[in-house]
Structures are given as C-alpha cells and as structure tokens.
C-alpha cells in the first residue's frame, strides 16, 4: 500500500518558489491500477518522483507498505527503488550504450541476483513485452514503441510491487498506445500495483480509478466502473 498524507514539495530557484505539491494526499491500495491526470505543470511528475523515492518531500508523511519512507537515507531509498518499485519514464530513458538485454539487466545487477536468475528474468519479461527476438539490439535500432516496451520490461523484470509510469504513451501513436495499455493491464492483472500518469482521458478510463491533480493538489476522484478489485481510495 502506498500512502501519502499532506505532502508538500517546493522548488526554489533564484527568482521564484514553485509549490509543486501542496497538501497532497493520496492512497493507492495493493493491486490497484490508478491513472493520474491533470494539466501540464500541475505536479503529476513531481508526485510520481516522490512516490518512486526519486525525490524527498518537504513536508507530510509518506508510507510504503506501512513503513515511513519519506525520511530515509539515500542508500535505503535506492534499495527500495531497486526491489519494490518499477519505473517507466516520461522519455524512454534507455541507456544508449547498452543493448536491450543489458538495459533490462541494469536493476537486476544492483539487486544482486545470480547470473542464471537474471537471465531467466530478462528473458521472461522480454517475452512478455514481445521482444524476446531483439535481445541484442541497441535502443537506437528499435522503434519508439519497441523502446517503450523495453522500458516496461526493465521495470517489471525484478517483479516490483509498484509500477510507476509517467506518460508511457506520450510519444506514441494511438494504436501503439493501446498496445502499451493492454500490456500494463495484463501486468496489473498479475498483481502489480500501477500508477499511471497520462494526458489521454481515453487511456485514463482504462484504470480502476482516476486521480485528478490541479495546482499541486488532488481535486477530484472519478472512479470508473471497475472490472476488478473494489477501490477503497481515500481523498484528503
């Protein structure tokens, strides 16, 4: 379970203070598929970054599976990212020097799996995204949709409990976008909690629940008629 209460995030530059998140509270239950929508600059990526322990909040409380993680040290946060969280970035963010196999391998390396285990996981996750045949391709030799699928494979290879995706379909055409959504839905069905940031209401509708962010706050909750688990989300 992911639980944020009264989270504050302020960016300070020389000239201005931006309150990216103000009193931001949200809870995501085990196995949920949540879509986050909102206008540009409203704080969606900031929320995801804090949820994924890439950034620390300036205030409020953040619990992951009941543990307070908002104040953990850098190494501890790296460990949680590595073991419990899978990330799909707004850009594809593949490492250009590494081929598909090695890109998926990156988080597994830091996890300390043995070689055989790593190989099995990489093959399984690439199979899932339909790229088993392209293991030795470099990112530059792949199409945008394929690159994004590699990023998904990389995010799920370590069997994370949470999958955080920041506009994974932003750069793709609508057909490709639907395929990616199908994939995410499939992953969610297998038990992974998914938080998806998207601009596309069409895609957002496929989630169990929709969180709308405006000016750094959750403004609205529109549960869509869910196919699966009953949502019991709380709004501050």
């Amino acid at each position: 379970m992911l639980d944020m209460q009264h989270i504050i995030k302020v960016y300070r530059t020389d000239l201005v203070e931006t309150h990216a998140l103000r009193d931001f509270s949200v809870t995501v239950a085990e196995g949920e598929f949540v879509a986050v929508t909102g206008p540009s600059g409203s704080g969606k990526t900031t929320f995801l970054n804090i949820a994924g322990l890439l950034e620390t909040p300036d205030g409020g409380r953040y619990q992951l599976d009941g543990d307070d993680v908002g104040t953990l040290g850098d190494d501890a946060r790296a460990g949680i990212r590595n073991q419990r969280i899978g990330f799909i970035f707004q850009g594809f963010n593949l490492i250009p020097d590494l081929d598909v196999f090695d890109n998926v391998d990156v988080p597994l390396r830091y996890r300390g799996f043995v070689t055989r285990d790593r190989r099995a996981r990489i093959e399984r996750s690439l199979e899932l995204v339909g790229l088993a045949a392209r293991m030795r391709h470099l990112p530059s030799q792949l199409s945008g949709g394929q690159q994004q699928r590699v990023a998904i494979a990389r995010a799920i290879a370590g069997d994370p409990r949470f999958l955080l995706a920041d506009e994974p379909t932003g750069n793709l055409d609508s057909l490709m976008a639907r395929q990616i959504m199908d994939l995410l839905a499939e992953i969610n069905r297998q038990g992974t909690t998914i938080v998806l940031v998207t601009h596309d209401p069409e895609l957002a509708r496929r989630a169990h629940r929709n969180i709308h962010v405006m000016d750094g706050q959750v403004t609205d909750l529109k549960p869509y008629a869910a196919r699966g688990a009953a949502p019991d989300a709380a709004v501050a």
């Binding site: 190494d75 970035f89 963010n93 490492i95 990156v106 988080p107 830091y110």
Partner: peptide, 16 residues
C-alpha cells in the same frame, strides 16, 4: 549523467 540518473532511479546506490 543521463544514463547514471537512470541507474540511480533503477536502484543503484551512490556507492555503486
């Protein structure tokens, strides 16, 4: 640094 940032996001510690 971009690649390093991805590694960090994927769970590499500073020491690593």
């Amino acid at each position: 640094a971009g690649a390093t940032a991805i590694r960090r996001a994927l769970g590499a510690s500073r020491g690593e």
